Computed example of a mutant assay.
Amino acid sequence: MQRAVILVIIVNAVTIGCETSAYLMERAGGLLHAIDRIALAIFTAEIAARLYAYRAAFFRDPWNWFDTIIVAVALIPASGPTSVLRALRILRALRLVSAVPSMRRVVGALLAAVPGMASIIGLLVLMIYIAAVIATKLFGDIVPERFDELPRSLFTLFQIMTGDDWGNVAQEVMEEKPWAWIFFIVYILMSTFVALNLFIAVVVNAMNDVEGDAAENETRAELESVRQELAAVNAKLDRLLIRTPSPSPSAELGSPVDR
């Protein structure tokens, strides 16, 4: 059933993408709309079946809330003021995250890394702010279209942090101040190679913790299964010993004729 739902999600995502093509809509628009409605009906039936099966426990799983919200958004009429919500139908493709266990583990690791990432984001924002103030003071008169005010300097430094056209920005400043390369290289090293790599380290560490917890839970489940099997075997042995009568003393010595 889970594999069938994954297949429906993939097919529905492809059909929604095909609806963006005017060529395909002219020739197969009715078919694409029909597939979309069938997929939505399947998703709704699946949510209803899960709700019937799990009852109150259905709402204790955050992934069930995730799936329900996505399907509920698709059920809103895509006409009038809510017509913009029609574009949100592609969010149904996000159900792959809840349907595929490996994707759920990745998302869980990202959520677990949020506290550590918040500290790194704060450090990165502080670093960019300090660099923007310095750049505005030093280069505002040289390249005013990039560093004349603090907001513009913040945007330019964010662009440099992503590696987008930073060489040309540095060359424009270095035409007037040749030593400006020191500022840009130090800033790139601190922002890109240090702060962004810290993001990766925190996420990888969180993923290792999640995978370790999953492996530990699996081991515990296996040990619990073995314990239950051993308990069942012991119970069977006890019943067999109770049913088997013990031999009497006369039977052990034999009858007088035998002697």
Rank of each mutant, 00 (worst) to 15 (best):
L253D: 02
T20A: 07
G29A: 06
I185S: 12
P151C: 05
A93K: 00
A235P: 02
F199L: 13
T44D: 00
D209P: 01
A201G: 06
V125D: 12
I128L: 12
I134C: 00
F147Y: 04
E176V: 11
A215R: 15
M207D: 06
L196G: 03
V97S: 08
A48V: 15
A232Y: 15
K236A: 15
I128Y: 01
L241K: 11
T219A: 15
R89Y: 12
D238Y: 12
R104L: 00
V204E: 05
E229V: 01
G122C: 07
V169K: 04
A180N: 03
D213R: 07
D67T: 08
I69C: 10
C18Q: 05
L32P: 10
T136D: 02
A180W: 04
A39Q: 08
S98E: 04
M161C: 03
F155P: 00
A56S: 09
L88Q: 05
D238H: 14
I10N: 07
S98H: 08
A131G: 04
T20L: 11
L94A: 13
A206W: 02
M190C: 04
A132V: 08
M127P: 00
T68V: 09
M1K: 12
G163L: 03
V125P: 07
A13N: 04
A39E: 05
F184R: 01
A4D: 10
R227Y: 11
I128F: 01
N234I: 13
P245Y: 14
R86T: 03
G30I: 09
A41F: 15
L198Q: 10
T136R: 14
S102Y: 01
F58K: 04
N12I: 06
I120E: 13
R259D: 08
A135I: 03
F139L: 03
P256K: 09
L124K: 05
R95F: 03
E218G: 14
A221F: 12
I76M: 02
L253H: 14
E175M: 13
P62M: 11
L253V: 14
V257S: 01
N197W: 01
I70L: 15
A235I: 00
E46M: 12
C18H: 05
P81N: 09
L240D: 14
R146H: 11
V210C: 01
Q2T: 12
Y187I: 03
D165E: 06
F43D: 10
L154K: 11
E252N: 07
M25N: 15
W65S: 07
T136M: 14
A13E: 02
I182R: 00
D61T: 08
I69K: 08
V202R: 13
L230F: 12
V100N: 07
I130A: 11
L189K: 01
R220W: 02
Q228V: 10
A231R: 14
A72F: 08
E46L: 13
G29E: 05
N217S: 10
A87S: 05
G140E: 04
V114H: 02
A215M: 14
L7G: 12
